[in-house]
Amino acid sequence: PPRPPPKPGPGEHPLQYNYSYWFSRRTPGKQTTSYDQNLKLVASFASVEQFWMYYSHLVRPGDLSGHSDYHLFKDGIRPMWEDSANKSGGKWIIRLKKGLASRCWENLVLAMLGEQFMVGEEICGAVVSIRYQEDILALWNRTAYDQVTTSRIRDTLKRVLNLPPNTIMEYKTHTDSIKDNSSF
């Protein structure tokens, strides 16, 4: 059923866009549910204060167990390749050593909510993926072939994430991810 869009409360600081927070987890063993079915909407919000209210109650990504993902996407964009906002897009992928996910995710989220990327409508959302050996951040944008935009996003990511100098950043189009079936 359609949800009413969230609205900033009195005195709150509105965000440029409304966002939705999603969670997914792959259960061990045979996969009987689709990616779509695993995706759970946690909350939608329209202001800085609403974001903190939800965020402060969520388990930090670095403290999640198993094969789990948080997805923070602009309201109206599902965190899936098939969504019309994503189908010509791609993502920057940053692999993190264990222990960095919570801090880096917060820095990424604050930069996105605060409109620090300065690429117009290009940003779709961000994902943090908790895995066994390493954790992975991804920032999705609409237009994979737009190199001016993807370079600008990379430069801002480097600035806001404050990553170790040897961190590798990789850009991948969603079309390529579909072809090689890589979904982490």
Binding site: G9, G11, E12, H13, P14, L15, Q16, V48, E49, W52, M53, S56, N107, L110, A111, L113, G114, E115, Q116, V160
Partner: peptide, 21 residues
Amino acid sequence: GTRLIYDRSFLLECRNSPLTK
């Protein structure tokens, strides 16, 4: 139109605002 740009330190300040509680 004007974009609503917030830097990290401002967003962190809002975390402690009474409105967030």
